[in-house]
C-alpha cells in the first residue's frame, strides 16, 4: 500500500526536483516531513520498482541519437531474442506487443554512428530485419504522468 508521502512525491516531483544543495530537505520542508522520511520513501519506491530512478529524462534528440525498433520474431524465439536485446546497454525500453511486429525496443546512443553500429550488430546476430522507426517530430510536452489514485 502506498503511503501518503509516497503519493505526494509521485504527484508533485515527477518534475522540478529542487536544484539546491539539499534538494530532499527542500522537498521535506515543502511537504512538512523530515528529510530522512523523504529519502527513505524514495529508496523504498525504487526498491519496489515503482520508480526507475530520481533523475533526468533526456530529450532523445538533443541528448544524442535514438530510435524505436520493431522486429517480427517467431514466438518460440521471443524470450531468447528479447533477453539478447535487453543485454545491450544502449537498449532502454524493451517490450513485447501483440502484433506481427511483436518485439519493440528503444535504442539510444551518444551519436548516430554508435546507434547504427548497435542496430547492425543486432540485425546480424538475430538474422532478421529490423524496422527502424526514428522519431521525426514530437508533439507532446513531457510533464510526467498524472496518476489517478483510487484508494
Amino acid at each position: 500500500m502506498m503511503t501518503t508521502l509516497a503519493r505526494q512525491l509521485l504527484d508533485r516531483y515527477q518534475r522540478g526536483l529542487p536544484l539546491s544543495a539539499n534538494p530532499y530537505a527542500e522537498i521535506a520542508a515543502e511537504l512538512g516531513v523530515s528529510e530522512q522520511d523523504v529519502l527513505a520513501t524514495l529508496r523504498q519506491l525504487r526498491e519496489q520498482k515503482i520508480i526507475t530512478r530520481v533523475g533526468p529524462v533526456f530529450d532523445h534528440h538533443k541528448a544524442g541519437a535514438s530510435t524505436l525498433v520493431a522486429m517480427a520474431v517467431p514466438p518460440e524465439r521471443l524470450d531468447e531474442i528479447a533477453a539478447y536485446i535487453s543485454r545491450f546497454d544502449a537498449v532502454n525500453h524493451n517490450y513485447a506487443r501483440e502484433h506481427d511486429f511483436n518485439l519493440w525496443f528503444v535504442v539510444t546512443a551518444a551519436d548516430q554512428q554508435q546507434l547504427d553500429a548497435v542496430l547492425a550488430t543486432i540485425e546480424t546476430d538475430c538474422g532478421m530485419p529490423l524496422l527502424n522507426l526514428p522519431m521525426e517530430q514530437a508533439y507532446h510536452i513531457d510533464l510526467g504522468f498524472k496518476l489517478a489514485w483510487q484508494d
Binding site: 533526468p56 533526456f58 536485446i85 511486429f101 539510444t108
Partner: peptide, 18 residues
C-alpha cells in the same frame, strides 16, 4: 498494439562510450 510483457525499462544511455 498492447504490450503484454516488459523486458526492460531504464533511462536512455547517452553518455559516450568507447
Amino acid at each position: 498494439l498492447f504490450s503484454n510483457r516488459q523486458f526492460k525499462q531504464t533511462g536512455g544511455r547517452y553518455a559516450r562510450v568507447g
